[in-house]
Design a protein around this nucleic acid. Structure first.
Lengths: 160, 160
DNA sequence: AAAGATTGACGATTCAATCTTA
DNA sequence: TAAGATTGAATCGTCAATCTTT
């Protein structure tokens, strides 16, 4: 942006941001072309495979507004990949639940996703770099309260 | 997504992607709150500060469709931050050009941006990590043809 | 009154079709 | 005919207001 050389931290920020923008676009686009699943749908299915999830929680997880989550799940319900269930114990809540068709779609999409990530990104990493990236992401995520603490503050990746 | 532990590369991918989604949202949101400039506008001004740019080129740089770039620049023109200029030598092209008001807006926004990036992200990096991140991003970006070659294939960051 | 979710109105982006200049 | 850019229609997301249940 004009000051790439002046500050290594800012340079690192910009390089990472630019790369991830293009990578998410590329991997997401390829995914949709090959499997028919938009990236957001894949993300939802991946989460719901682990556990049924309240709409609010899903919105937070996806970094989406409440209304956005409602509409996303609505579209996926229309497509038969998820259903909504209202628990009798608290009828204010709505849980999104994956269907058999949703599980099947995810099963088909998952290997494609893994292959794409490796092909477009993972295979270029050198030894130790994955661990460094994980350590950085967990440290910063934890500082923002977005992820649980890194395992033991320093045993994840010496990076050398 | 359910397989965090199985493959360190995929884990690294996911951790980075999740972090950057939240970070871009946070930094972008704060930027707009404090300076009135949406992240995309800031990005455009930062690029146009370097040189006048054809619409197509701008679209590629921003990872945006052609139509998207047209409309983005139209809004910014309406706000007085850029103008469009058609060169007499090839009247098919349109160059986006930053205005004095645009320069002023960027000047005001830049320190806020730098502070936010440092505050939310940079200050958590440990010595050598910025250089590792730059090396990774440039290596992968170059493999995709998105950036010029990394300087000398290995002198950028020993990471230790 | 508060929590959870949905809806209406709207803003921003995409794709495909179109317009203009070379 | 191709290159560059813009536009119409449709999609997806946001915000604020609303509805239901606690």
């Amino acid at each position: 942006m004009g000051l790439e050389g002046s500050d290594p931290r800012w340079h690192a920020w910009y390089a990472q941001a630019a790369l991830h923008t293009r990578l998410l676009e590329k991997v997401g686009g390829e995914m949709e072309r090959r499997t028919g699943l938009p990236a957001a749908w894949f993300e939802v299915l991946g989460h719901l495979m682990k556990c049924d999830t309240r709409m609010n929680e899903l919105a937070d997880h996806l970094v989406l507004s409440r209304g956005g989550a409602t509409r996303l799940v609505a579209r996926m319900e229309e497509a038969g990949l998820v259903t909504r269930e209202i628990p009798p114990t608290d009828r204010r809540a709505t849980f999104a639940v994956i269907t058999d068709a949703g599980r099947k779609a995810l099963e088909e999409a998952l290997p494609v996703h893994l292959e794409l990530v490796e092909e477009e990104w993972g295979r270029y990493l050198e030894p130790g770099e994955a661990e460094t990236l994980i350590a950085v992401a967990e440290r910063i995520g934890a500082a923002h309260g977005w992820v649980r603490e890194p395992e033991a503050e320093g045993d994840a990746a010496p990076a050398a």
